[in-house]
Amino acid sequence: MKTEISDAELNAFVDGELDSADRERVLAAVAVDGELAQRVCALRLLKEQLRHAYAEPPAASRRGVAPRPWRALAMALMLAGAAGAGWIARDQSAATEILASRGDAAHVILHLAAGDAERARNALDDAEGLLRAANDAGRPIAVELVANRGGLDLLRVDLSPHAARIAALRRAHPNFELVACGQTIERLREKGIEVRLLPGTRVASSALDQIVTRMNQGWSYLRI
């Protein structure tokens, strides 16, 4: 005897949407009905084809260098949060409005402690995003990038992959400061490595000291 199984039920079967009683019924029907079994196979194959077709979507090719505008937005939100304004920002322009809405200057300390290329790039993207957003809003801002441990490489003349970008950022934004951790430098020196820093980099006794000092002064802290 053939059980009637609707297309909707078969779809629900392959999608795992049936409860166990209905599943049982479909399984029993499939066992005795070759044509039904074929339809189940075809549906499963189709699912598989679809998944395969989008397993590797083409990489998004973005024009220009605006890699992570949402990240800058997250930080603008952070500034708003630090001011107690909460979550209100529609997009980059609204974020700049928030920046503009407060009279006093924004202060942000970015902390880079790891040497991997992506984080170093993120640190610069974040710094640039903040400086730009504040600039666009005509609002004063101070951004300090503090580097220690592996993160210090970003500020070392012979190792920094972004020396030119950092120099350009500093030219465009005099309120963008670089701070190196004195302890990390000392540790390297003990190993016989002489650290040469990018021009204009200040040395703090330690990254932690610098961060604590700044946070006591009311700066917002962001670890990259």
């Binding site: 505008p69 949402w70 909460g86 979550w87 209100i88 920002a89 997009d91």
Partner: peptide
Amino acid sequence: VQEATAKALERGD
């Protein structure tokens, strides 16, 4: 995706 992400940040609450 960028736009959706921005909206998600905005409406996180």
